[in-house]
Amino acid sequence: MATQFGWKKIRDYLSLIVTALFLLGLAYINVISGLGLIDRYYNGILILVMVNVILAVSLNLINGITGQFSIGHAGFMAVGAYVSALLSIHLRWPFAAVLVAGMAAAAVMGVVVGIPTLRLKGDYLAIATLGFGEIIRVVIVNLDITGGPRGLPGIPPKTGFFVAEALAALTILVISNLINSAHGRAMLAVREDEVAAETMGVNATRYKVTAFVVGAAFAGLAGGLYAHYMMFIDPKSFSFFKSVEVLVMVVLGGLGSVTGSILSAAVLTYLPEMLRQFAMLRMVIYSMLLIVMMLVRPQGLLGTWEVSQAFRDLWRRRETGEAGRRDVHGIA
């Protein structure tokens, strides 16, 4: 038992060190970015990392926390992207206003799609959300105002690294708060056992729709940021493959772990860039890594573990000194 106790302690300290290094790295990036010393290529990657962090964390609320298997996230992102871009181009609304409008539009879409489809379970829900994502894409292709398949150019470049970073941080904060509240607990209960959750007084339908709408709103935010960074959007950017990309981030990071979603969104955004030197083999290596990962750790990088747990455990040990005793009974 002593070794188990030791290992847990080491793991907790290790995660503190990694977090500290991560924050230091982030601070360094902020400083050089603030001084204008970062080159445009890396600046772009960093913004896309932030956009993907928002997407992954928000999809995790739906798939990982509430257990509703949705693969239509790119659809909500597209709604946010097009609504905010069109408002910027035609009405010249301020950036903050178009982002909020994009979120609101995506949230409304979340209600419209959520209420009928969330009575479906598992595979059926997945197919319904997939269908929704495709419908959005086809609608965009066939509308005039969206520029159809040619895409929508001339979006003012307004997404900088700092804005993207701040909004990613906000997303993480809001969604973690939600998860750690009584409402988040109700969502977890729905994931674990819908019937039992209902008999404990949890309105399962309401929480499924809530998770869906909150997740959709943040996907809309990510879409708005993306549009105002790329300055050009087309329906291809929001295809089924984008939904799958976000889903892979969530599953790889660990369904239900916000820390895992952040980590894997960052890694999976940067990895394809890092692999550019292998040219043709790039996507092969990327896919191989995913396959190996799923074979070795099917529960994802971090499972359901959160970095905050390390802090809490260390704090409790300091405060009471009894954690060692509790670990004797502990299994994990």
Partner: peptide, 30 residues
Amino acid sequence: RLFQNLPVIENVKIGYHLNAKSSLWASMVR
């Protein structure tokens, strides 16, 4: 029918769900 993948204490906390007062919005910004 327990909430199998949640800690024992969380299983019981769900029971207090009915009495929790914080609204959804308050939960998100606190």
